[in-house]
Every structure is written in C-alpha cells, then in structure tokens.
Simulated scan of single mutants.
Amino acid sequence: MSQSLDSYFKDVSNTKLLTREEEVILSQRIERGDATARNIMIESNLRLAISIAKKYYKSGCDMEDLIQESNIGLMKAVEKFDWRRGFKFSTYACWWIKQSVCRHISTNRNTVKVPAHTASLAYKVRTIIQEYEKDLGQKPSIPEISELLGVTENMVKASLESIKFQNMLSIDGTIGNEEGGRSIIEVIADSNNIDIDGILDKEKIMIMIKSCLSRLSQREEQILRLRFGISDNFEHTDAFDVTEDDIADIVKG
C-alpha cells in the first residue's frame, strides 16, 4: 500500500464521529444549502467509506480507485439522506457506498466493458428492495433504486412491472388463511377443460330427437333434418318441393 494512502488513512482516523443528533442538525443545514455542513458530514464518515472499500481489496481493482468510488457513494448518500425517515446516516450511507464500489468492480472486471445494469436488471432491483427493506425497515423509492443501480427511473419501473414483486401471487397458494382451503388454481376456469355434463345432456337430447324422427316417414324425417340442421352423419341427395306450411304440418304431427 502506498505511503500516500497510509497518510490518508491516518488523517481520516483522527476525524470525529457524529452523534445521531449531530447528523440530524447537519442534514437540516444541508437541506438549506449549507456547503460547510455537507463537508463536515462527508469528512466525518470517510472512515466508513474506507472500511467498505477495504472489504473489496481482493477484487483485483486498485485500492485508490476503490476508495475514490467509496467516497463518491458517500457524497451521494449525503445528498440523498432524509433524516425524517428515522435511521442513522451510516446505515443509509453503506448502501450508496457499496453500490458505487460494486458497480466500479463490475464495470472494470471484464475486458469488454459492459454496463452493470445490462445483466439481470430485474433480479438486481428485486435484491435491492429485499436487502434495503431488511436493513432499513423501509422500501426504497424508485429514484433511490435508480441511483443505487445507476439506471434510469423508467428502467426501474419497467423492471418492477415485469417481476410484479409486490403483488405477485402463486397459483398454488391457498385462498384465505385456513388450512386445507382451496388453492387459487382450483378456482381458475380452464378454457380447455371438457364439460362432461354438457356432453351428456347433448347426447340425451339427440336420443330424444332420434326417437321422435323414427316415428316419421323417411321423407318427413329428411325434410325436418334439412329444415332444422339436424345432422347425424345424415346424407341427402334429393330436393323437396315443400312449403313452410307443409313443414309446419309435419312438426305438429
């Protein structure tokens, strides 16, 4: 490790850590555009940035680059931090620092540079939401996810739509909370399902029709079949010279 880094580490180790109350006061000043408060917040958390950068030392990237990326993540965290949400700044800053470092490693690990967001964005969005909520007790906003992953807000929205993360249901899940209840798949209509009852009803009707037709002459049966479109592999070759009144008389019997 270079002497410049050793000197930097020593200087940073002497900075005073902030209390929760001091973080809130500085954050309020930063919201009002106080550049001095912003610098104090950054300098007071440089040790955090260094500690995270050191965890990725074996990634193959230069340590100075890792620290630079950590500091970039720290500065973003200072800009985005909302003290009203109730968690400590260090907890929030860890997210931005880690994401900044990981994106740097991902981009520089390959010979051919591939933007980090091109690989499994939906998976990354889901992972970010799960881990963020686990650590901070809240879901990240779309702008936060966008910043953390380095992608546009529209890409985040599209990913959320595709995975349906918050509203996804399993069709094998049980309706309600009762054990032994019916699953969702059991109550979804199957358009390809065969209606056995309907088939049996049609067969009964056809038997009744055949029984009635059998009582007629062959000519009368043919006329009624043609008139009402009754097909039972019935073939005909003759045309009948009959009127509607003739057919009505046959139907009346």
Results as ranks from 00 to 15, higher is better:
residue 85 R to F: 11
residue 69 E to R: 04
residue 91 T to N: 09
residue 89 F to Y: 02
residue 69 E to D: 12
residue 87 F to D: 09
residue 98 K to Y: 08
residue 63 M to A: 11
residue 76 K to V: 14
residue 97 I to L: 03
residue 75 M to D: 10
residue 68 Q to G: 15
residue 76 K to D: 15
residue 73 G to Y: 00
residue 92 Y to C: 09
residue 77 A to V: 08
residue 80 K to Y: 12
residue 85 R to L: 14
residue 96 W to T: 04
residue 89 F to G: 07
residue 75 M to I: 15
residue 99 Q to N: 11
residue 65 D to W: 03
residue 68 Q to S: 14
residue 70 S to C: 06
residue 66 L to P: 04
residue 72 I to P: 02
residue 96 W to G: 09
residue 98 K to H: 10
residue 74 L to V: 07
residue 94 C to W: 06
residue 86 G to D: 01
residue 99 Q to C: 15
residue 96 W to Q: 01
residue 79 E to D: 15
residue 71 N to P: 09
residue 91 T to G: 11
residue 78 V to S: 07
residue 91 T to E: 12
residue 84 R to M: 14
residue 93 A to T: 10
residue 88 K to N: 05
residue 64 E to C: 07
residue 64 E to R: 01
residue 87 F to H: 06
residue 87 F to M: 07
residue 77 A to C: 04
residue 64 E to Q: 08
residue 97 I to S: 01
residue 99 Q to K: 10
residue 73 G to W: 02
residue 84 R to E: 15
residue 85 R to Q: 13
residue 94 C to Q: 11
residue 96 W to N: 11
residue 64 E to F: 09
residue 82 D to A: 06
residue 65 D to H: 02
residue 93 A to E: 05
residue 87 F to E: 09
residue 64 E to V: 05
residue 79 E to L: 15
residue 74 L to C: 02
residue 84 R to N: 15
residue 66 L to W: 04
residue 66 L to I: 04
residue 69 E to T: 04
residue 84 R to S: 15
residue 67 I to N: 01
residue 81 F to C: 06
residue 97 I to Q: 02
residue 76 K to Y: 15
residue 74 L to I: 11
residue 75 M to L: 09
residue 65 D to R: 00
residue 83 W to I: 14
residue 69 E to C: 06
residue 79 E to V: 12
residue 74 L to D: 04
residue 85 R to E: 14
residue 80 K to S: 13
residue 89 F to R: 00
residue 100 S to M: 03
residue 76 K to G: 15
residue 98 K to I: 13
residue 81 F to R: 02
residue 68 Q to M: 14
residue 70 S to Q: 03
residue 92 Y to F: 14
residue 66 L to H: 01
residue 89 F to Q: 00
residue 93 A to G: 04
residue 91 T to A: 10
residue 76 K to F: 15
residue 91 T to C: 13
residue 82 D to M: 08
residue 90 S to M: 07
residue 69 E to M: 05
residue 99 Q to I: 08
residue 87 F to K: 08
residue 71 N to M: 14
residue 95 W to K: 04
residue 81 F to I: 07
residue 74 L to A: 06
residue 86 G to A: 03
residue 95 W to I: 10
residue 72 I to A: 11
residue 71 N to Q: 14
residue 82 D to I: 10
residue 93 A to H: 03
residue 91 T to S: 15
residue 95 W to S: 13
residue 90 S to W: 07
residue 81 F to K: 01
residue 79 E to I: 11
residue 90 S to N: 10
residue 78 V to W: 04
residue 90 S to L: 13
residue 96 W to H: 14
residue 95 W to F: 15
residue 85 R to V: 07
residue 71 N to E: 12
residue 67 I to L: 09
residue 95 W to M: 08
residue 77 A to F: 06
residue 95 W to A: 08
residue 73 G to A: 02
residue 91 T to M: 12
residue 89 F to K: 03
residue 83 W to F: 14
residue 97 I to Y: 00
residue 65 D to Q: 01
residue 95 W to G: 01
residue 82 D to Y: 03
residue 93 A to I: 06
residue 84 R to P: 13
residue 72 I to E: 07
residue 96 W to P: 04
residue 89 F to H: 05
residue 79 E to C: 10
residue 92 Y to W: 08
residue 83 W to K: 10
residue 98 K to G: 12
residue 64 E to S: 05
residue 94 C to H: 06
residue 78 V to I: 10
residue 75 M to N: 12
residue 100 S to F: 05
residue 77 A to S: 10
residue 88 K to A: 13
residue 86 G to R: 01
residue 66 L to A: 04
residue 84 R to W: 13
residue 85 R to N: 09
residue 81 F to Y: 13
residue 64 E to K: 04
